[in-house]
Write a protein that binds this DNA or RNA. Sequence first.
DNA 1: AAATCTGTCAACGTTGAAGTTGATTGACGT
DNA 2: ACGTCAATCAACTTCAACGTTGACAGATTT
Lengths: 216, 216
Amino acid sequence: MSRRRRSAQNESSPNYQAKRRELLRDAAIVFQEKGYEAATLNDIAERFGTDRASIYYYFASKKELFQALFHDVVSGVLDENITAAEAVLALDLSTAEKLRRLVELQLLSYENNYPYVYLYIQEDMAKLEFQSTPWAKDMLRKTRRFEKIVSDLLDDLVAEGTFRGDIPTPLMAKALFGMINWTHRWLKPGPRKVNAKQTIDAFCSLFFEGALNPDA
Amino acid sequence: MSRRRRSAQNESSPNYQAKRRELLRDAAIVFQEKGYEAATLNDIAERFGTDRASIYYYFASKKELFQALFHDVVSGVLDENITAAEAVLALDLSTAEKLRRLVELQLLSYENNYPYVYLYIQEDMAKLEFQSTPWAKDMLRKTRRFEKIVSDLLDDLVAEGTFRGDIPTPLMAKALFGMINWTHRWLKPGPRKVNAKQTIDAFCSLFFEGALNPDA
DNA sequence: AAATCTGTCAACGTTGAAGTTGATTGACGT
DNA sequence: ACGTCAATCAACTTCAACGTTGACAGATTT
């Protein structure tokens, strides 16, 4: 039924797409606040300012709504990040400076695409029922791709002698992504005490030079 | 009904407590694998090797089972960690060495109490329905307490000149806890490529001295 | 051996959220 | 004024998971 409607005006409609995106955004906020399982369509409808049944005008199911969030938004952001990361690699910069740019890229992406990407980080795809769907695998592939770029860069830095060789690069990578990804629990955008730029500086200083005072 | 039974043999019973703990452990594994909301009592019963209804012989509800996990296990571990942390503070060691011991404490605790504490970390209490219950607040209080110990130590390290002063200590703390807590996504106990001890060394080296090669 | 206790199980009742339907409202072109 | 269509809503059905009950088998006690 809602199916019929949606196929009828599928691509066109002026503000249909606009409302759809608005609903998508509201859903993202609710999913981020409560988690996928705990969030109900009622919660989402309430935030959207309408009845639960109206959601079915835009999406066929809760699953499809959740999937659309990733297919229409997060996946694109991940693509952008990978493209941007590869552009950084091609730049005429020191390897260390490239790594710094990648950290910057990632954290700014989290801030600019709030709350979409944090939603992806907080929902451990490995635990969700979607883990075996093609799109979930695609998301995972893209994430691994970005991690690989960083990981290779770490190997280069050790090989060229810029980074110390006594710490396994996989553990370095885990530490770095830990700092970055854990921000989903505390970093909120907007005018706050701590913003993404300060965090980037602090994390990069710490990761490159460490916490010890060089003058001591 | 199950109420009557449980109050009847409440404290006593030889292997009642043993089975209860076994069920608690199985539940923890399932909750950790699927998340609280997605996990069903059927899943837990299946792992426990019995019928779903039998669970009610030990716990009055899914909520109570989940709560018991924290009240009977996690809360105690957190207490131990705080006590151990305070013992470290009283030791005759450099402030830096004390911090190292705290990181060690935390990661070894995650390993020794697997999967209980990771369950606590992965379930963002701020998102769960329990967030306002007294025991959830108590858990949060204990977590904050441990974080405060680390945070104060960081302040000391900056004040005494051991640590650099140009990175805000709150951000240092976020970075450190990010590395540590993110391990819940990849560090599993048992004979693996990477274990807790290697992780402690790598994280401490990185956090203290950074990734840059001192000889370069 | 009778009584009781421990723990389990099949069957049922209850609830809450997902999903469906057809009527209805309001805007817009004719 | 009339018909059409986008969008909404109240009211319903369905379903999965929670929760309950009473019977029952084996062990233990008296």
